[in-house]
Design a protein around this nucleic acid. Structure first.
Lengths: 131, 131
DNA sequence: ATTCAACCTTCCAGTGACAGGAGGGTCAAG
DNA sequence: CTTGACCCTCCTGTCACTGGAAGGTTGAAT
């Protein structure tokens, strides 16, 4: 299977497949003409990566997850700890963004948004950093 | 005021101040010895930027906000629309992350996390992308 | 006078995870 | 034999910095 079909099958852009080869994640064989040849196992890995990436795992995590996946004697606790750590990061990010949302909402609701120059948003940006 | 003190005053690293000069955000005068000399107005701008960046505004937005701030005949609606658009992005990101959190929590809770290899997390990564 | 630390300077490389594009080779159909 | 759809490598750009090398300046202590 050439890169184009592999891209379609995995749901990843061809550029990304080349990148994954560059960093040693999925290294397909080459045909005589130099084209990448993706075997079923490669497609499987690519789908695994597509799913893991869509869950927000970093490439480094994906690499570990993939090797754990291929290691049939792994401990599920190893996988769980990576996922838990990732979940922690996601929850921290959610907290930060919700705090941000609150501040932005407050600022926006206090701004009339008309043609006049008075703007509590700019006032905040200008003043609050001083204190 | 040299770059070090300006960094302390603004709450930004000196490296960032040099970067902001590179991209034309805040361009201090130079002393005879070639050192950057930050005037009070520059410090004010840097604080403005520090605050805007901490609210998650992109540099491009910060540039616009800064010019609006300096334009005393601006319309507050211009500022409000930037902030509203940013809030929209923040809320979209929160939605995405919450959906992610739900999926991760579900996967994690279904994984025993022991020494055995059975792992619903890996099963999901391996299978769900196929469908 | 010298030395030393603490500043400051410029410039180059790296981050993460790709995306865009130039310039060129390969293949199958008409 | 040409056309168009593929494929290849290599280089640059993204975003907002961060780290580091190599070297100049300053002010104070020795």
């Amino acid at each position: 299977m050439n890169i184009g079909e592999a891209a379609t099958e995995s749901g990843l852009p061809a550029k990304t497949l080349r990148y994954y080869e560059d960093i040693g994640l999925v290294t397909p064989r080459r045909s005589d003409n130099g084209y990448r040849h993706y075997a079923e196992e490669d497609i499987h890995k690519l789908r695994f990566l597509q799913r893991a990436r869509s869950l927000g795992f970093a490439i480094a995590d994906c690499r570990t997850l993939l090797s754990l996946y291929e290691d049939t004697s792994r401990a599920s606790s190893d996988v769980k700890s990576i996922a838990t750590s990732h979940l922690d990061q996601v929850e921290i990010k959610i907290q930060e963004l919700e705090s941000l949302r609150k501040t932005l909402k407050h600022l926006i609701s206090s701004c009339k948004g008309d043609h006049r120059p008075d703007c509590p948003i700019l006032d905040d940006l200008s003043r609050s950093a001083k204190s």
